[in-house]
Design a protein around this nucleic acid. Structure first.
Length: 514
RNA sequence: GGCGGCGUAGCUCAGCGGUAGAGCAGGGGAAUCAUAAUCCCUUGGUCGGCGGUUCAAAUCCGUCCGCCGCUACCA
């Protein structure tokens, strides 16, 4: 694993609205993978940031009485604050208003132009001023007076404006070949099916410039146009690596290993982005993986319902690690999920407090009381010991394999199997009985549990960095020996352990389900 | 309309050709080191309906029913 480069990205988040749990979810998932790869010895670049151009931002800024840039500064800072608060270990927080990004977009545009991949044409269609949207002929209805109206009921008119186009239609076959030859390129399979069928149904050239508003990156050589926000946004993944300077040391991270995205933007990443890259002669990313959406207590979250989950309030109440854990534990990654207080509290109490927290506490408190607070010596392993130790030793490989498949929930399930087995083991071995009959064996049993807990805590660090750091402290694992590779070296017998303290308090509240 | 997915224990889901599984919830018991936490045992399903292929089908095929997603230029 050592010396391997690994790049993972979140989408850059659009700043026309405040951050919400969907953004948090993508970032946390990407963070877990980034942290695990670092733990596993890889050279990691983790990119996140904000997407700041476009008509929506221009309008939102105007409504707020600010310049687009000032508005974007403000909202971008909120996204960054959320990332920091959630412990997102990004290597760069990129903004599409950063100067190097402007340069990269201009450079990519010029490459596409030089390659003959773009041309100046005209975009025309039925436009509803009220909706600020174009509609297809087949979406329109005719009202009583014979006028064409949009599905929303807004009147439409035929408009025609000059626009630069990308020859997307040239890339249909090569995109399909890409999906075919590289089954891992697009995931999960639902997303892969949808995108494939979309591309198979035929691609039209893509309008990649706008003249109807000004907040964007000017088109090189044609400054009355700004670059279409998606082209602008997608380029962030390479502008962060120094593009177009392929001698930039960061360029070694390209192609990205994983673009993690929400399912609503899978198409932009799986169709437009590789087409742009291929047209510009740049390698395509290795994998694009889209995850699902959260509902809140069974209801879709929306502005009108006003039921968005306040991630700050949530982490204030339950703690950052508990929220990180819940989001990745509750739902198979890729599926939609439902957020509810009852299930959050149930997970925290059952799995964090009872299963893991209590296991650590009962183990460590017996060491504190009966072993003079020092790490007891290993004994000759019984069959029971060996089985449990072997299951813990297998964890790094199991977690690595699960994360390679983006099975973030499965990885946790594997860890919890070991935690449950450990609780069964401690009951079977009953060190509190051995204390009176065989004090040496008691120490050996507790030492087995420390070894297991060390492995558990090590692989859980990516999910719950702060809590697992505390647990590793209590287990006497030196801060510089917490990587996967360090698990090969046993802890020093006799190491004094700090007084045990609960890692995960039970959540007791009036609305607690149990 | 076209393409695709899902429907398995009360709940969330795994299994995807060889005598129905996990977690949670429910019931009974044990233990008392521990955050009243833990452990053991256990109730519970004609695997959406019907038909077919097969020695054998949640598992393959067909069909029907019920949900859901995608079907491009706001992001």
């Amino acid at each position: 694993m050592t010396d391997q480069t690994f790049m993972i990205t979140t989408p850059i988040y659009y700043v026309n609205g405040d951050p919400h749990i969907g953004h948090a979810y993508t970032s946390i998932a990407a963070d877990v993978i980034a942290r695990f790869r670092r733990l596993d010895g890889a050279d990691v670049f983790f990119l996140t940031g904000t997407d700041e151009h476009g008509q929506k931002v221009e309008q939102a800024a105007e409504a707020a009485g600010l310049s687009p840039k000032a508005f974007a500064d403000e909202v971008s800072a909120r996204f960054r604050a959320m990332a920091d608060r959630l412990g997102i270990s990004y290597d760069r927080f990129i903004r599409t208003t950063d100067p190097d990004h402007y340069a990269a977009v201009a450079a990519l545009w010029s490459r596409l132009e030089a390659a003959g991949a773009i041309y100046l044409g005209a975009y025309e269609g039925w436009y509803a001023v009220r909706d600020e949207a174009f509609y297809g002929e087949d979406e329109l209805r005719t009202d009583a007076s014979g006028r064409r109206i949009a599905p929303s009921g807004a009147p439409v008119e035929w408009v025609r404006e000059p626009s630069w186009f990308f020859r997307l239609s040239d890339w249909q076959d090569r995109l399909l070949a890409l999906y075919e030859e590289r089954p891992d390129f697009l995931g999960p399979s639902r997303s892969r099916n949808e995108i494939t069928s979309f591309v198979r149904s035929g691609l039209k050239d893509l309008s990649i410039s706008r003249t109807s508003f000004a907040w964007g990156i000017p088109v090189p050589g044609d400054p009355s146009h700004v670059v279409y926000v998606w082209l602008d946004a997608l380029v962030n993944y390479i502008s962060a690596l120094g593009f177009p300077d392929e001698n930039n040391p960061l360029w070694r991270f390209w192609p990205a290993d994983i673009h993690l995205v929400g399912k609503e933007i899978a198409r932009f990443h799986a169709v437009y982005w590789p087409a742009f890259l291929m047209a510009a002669g740049i390698e395509v990313p290795r994998r694009i993986y889209s995850h699902g959406w959260w509902t809140n207590e069974g209801e879709k979250m929306s502005k009108s319902l006003g039921n968005a989950i306040d991630i700050n309030a949530l982490t204030d109440e339950f703690g950052v690690d508990a929220v990180r854990f819940f989001l990745l534990r509750e739902v198979p990654f890729g599926n939609d999920g439902d957020f509810s207080r009852a299930s959050l509290i149930s997970r925290l109490n059952t799995e964090l407090a009872n299963d893991l927290g209590n296991l650590a506490q009962r183990t460590l408190s017996q060491i504190a009381r009966n072993c003079d607070g020092r790490l007891p010596a290993r004994g000759e392993a019984t069959e029971d010991d060996s089985l449990l130790l072997a299951s813990a030793d297998a964890l790094p490989a199991l977690v690595r394999a699960a994360l390679d498949r983006l099975a973030l929930q499965e990885a946790l399930e594997e860890v919890w199997k070991v935690i449950r087995a450990s609780n069964a083991y401690i009951d079977r071995q009953a060190p509190w009985v051995l204390k009176k009959t065989d004090i040496e064996r008691m120490g050996a049993v507790l030492r087995v549990l420390v070894s297991v807990l060390r492995r558990v805590a090590t692989v859980l660090q990516p999910y719950m960095p702060a809590s697992m750091a505390r647990l590793l402290d209590q287990l006497g694992v030196p801060p510089d020996a917490r990587r996967i590779a360090d698990l090969g070296s046993p802890l020093l017998t006799g190491t004094p352990l700090p007084a045990p303290q609960g890692i995960f308090p039970r959540h007791v509240a009036a609305d607690a389900a149990s």
